[in-house]
Design a protein around this nucleic acid. Structure first.
Length: 320
DNA sequence: CAGTAG
DNA sequence: AGGCCTTACTG
DNA sequence: GCCT
C-alpha cells in the first residue's frame, strides 16, 4: 500500500459518496485528503509507524482510521461497502465524455437504473432529460459516450489478437509434422479483451518448431523458448504463448490452458474428491494415466455435464 | 447560471 | 460548535 | 470530515 494507492482509494470514496448524494463538505474532505497525500513527500507507512498520520493536512480522525486499515490490511471496508452498494454502471457514467458525477448522482437517486443497458434504453427514450437538473445535453452525451465505448470494444485488442492468432495457428497447421492445433486461454473462453494469444499444438518434432518459430515473418521476437513452450511478441504487438505437447497430452493441456485459472484450480479440487487427479498435462485415475480424446470425456469422468469454455470463468459453474 | 473538467 | 465553499470553461 |  503506497501513497498513491491510498490517495486513489480516498478519491474513489469521495466519488461514490458524491453519487450517493452525501454531504458536499464530507466529499470535499476526502478529496482534499487524497490530493494532500498525492503531493506528500513522506511515506504514509512510515508516518503510521511513528503515529503521525494526522499530521498530514486534511487527515483527521476518520480518514486516519481508513489509512490505518489500508496500511495494515491492504483493504478499506468503507470503500468495499460503497462499491457493493452502488452498481458498477454509476462508476462508468462519469467516464463518459461530458457526463460527470453530478449526472451520476441524479440518475442514481431518481431512477432504478442498474446497468449500462438500462441506462442506454432510458437515454434513447428521452428519460434522462426529464430528470431534475439534467437536460438534453447530458442525454446526448450519454448516448454518444456509450457509442464510443462500443466502437472501442469492437476495435479492441481482440481484433489484433485474433489476427495474430489466425496467422500463427495457420502456420502451425500448415506443417506436416503437426497433429492438432487449437486456440486456448481467454480467446477460447470468448473474452472480448485478451492479454495474449494462447495456442496448444501437438507435433512430432517439438524441438524443430521451437527453433524455427522465431523465423516466422509475423513473429517479432521470442522472449522465451524451450522444447515445450514458446513465448514472444508479434509485429501487431500481441503477446503469444505456444504450448508444444505430445499427442496424448493435447486435451489435458488444452483443458488446463483454457482456464480460467480459478476455474481449473477449483475443478482439480473437485476431481480430487472423485479420486481423480488433474495435472497440467494428464488425467490420472487410480495412479493410472487415462487417455482422453476430447474434453467431454474429462467432464464425464468427473460426473459433470459439459461446461463450455465461454462460462469457465468463475468456479461457481461447477456446482451448477 | 448550472454543469463539467482538471 | 460552526464554518468550510477552487477556478476556469462551456452551453 | 477537517479545522479552528
Amino acid at each position: 500500500m503506497n501513497n498513491l494507492e491510498a490517495a486513489w482509494s480516498l478519491n474513489e470514496i469521495a466519488d461514490l459518496l458524491e453519487i450517493k448524494g452525501e454531504n458536499p463538505y464530507k466529499i470535499r474532505a476526502y478529496k482534499r485528503a487524497a490530493a494532500s497525500i498525492t503531493n506528500l513527500q513522506l511515506n504514509l507507512e512510515d508516518l503510521y509507524k511513528e503515529g503521525s498520520l494526522r499530521d498530514v493536512p486534511g487527515v483527521g480522525k476518520a480518514i486516519a482510521e481508513k489509512l490505518e486499515e489500508m496500511i495494515t490490511t491492504g483493504k478499506c471496508s468503507m470503500l468495499e461497502k460503497l462499491r457493493e452498494e452502488i452498481p458498477p454502471v454509476f462508476r462508468s457514467i462519469p467516464q463518459l465524455p461530458g457526463v460527470g458525477l453530478h449526472a451520476a448522482r441524479v440518475i442514481y437517486n431518481n431512477t432504478d437504473i442498474k446497468d449500462l443497458e438500462q441506462l442506454e434504453r432510458a437515454a434513447r427514450q428521452r428519460k434522462i432529460r426529464a430528470l431534475p437538473g439534467l437536460g438534453p445535453k447530458t442525454e446526448v452525451n450519454i448516448i454518444r459516450g456509450l457509442e464510443i465505448i462500443k466502437t472501442q470494444r469492437d476495435s479492441s485488442p481482440l481484433n489484433l489478437a485474433s489476427a495474430s492468432a489466425e496467422i500463427l495457428v495457420g502456420f502451425l497447421s500448415s506443417l506436416d509434422i503437426t497433429h492438432r492445433v487449437a486456440l486456448s486461454g481467454s480467446i477460447r473462453r470468448g473474452k472480448d479483451t485478451v492479454h495474449d494469444v494462447d495456442i496448444v499444438a501437438s507435433v512430432d518434432d517439438k524441438k524443430f518448431i521451437a527453433e524455427n518459430f522465431a523465423k516466422h515473418p509475423h513473429v517479432k521476437e521470442v522472449s522465451q523458448s524451450t522444447d515445450n513452450r514458446i513465448e514472444g511478441l508479434t509485429w501487431l504487438g500481441v503477446k503469444f504463448d505456444v504450448m508444444l505437447v505430445e499427442e496424448q497430452e493435447f486435451i489435458p493441456v488444452l483443458f488446463w490452458t483454457t482456464g480460467s485459472k480459478e476455474f481449473f484450480r477449483e475443478l482439480t479440487v473437485f476431481a480430487a474428491g472423485k479420486g481423480c487427479r488433474l495435472t497440467g498435462n494428464q488425467v490420472i485415475v487410480d495412479d493410472r494415466v487415462v487417455p482422453v480424446k476430447d474434453e467431454k470425456e474429462i467432464f464425464e469422468l468427473l460426473g459433470l455435464s459439459y461446461i463450455p469454455p465461454e462460462i469457465r470463468e468463475s468456479p461457481e459453474v461447477i456446482r451448477a
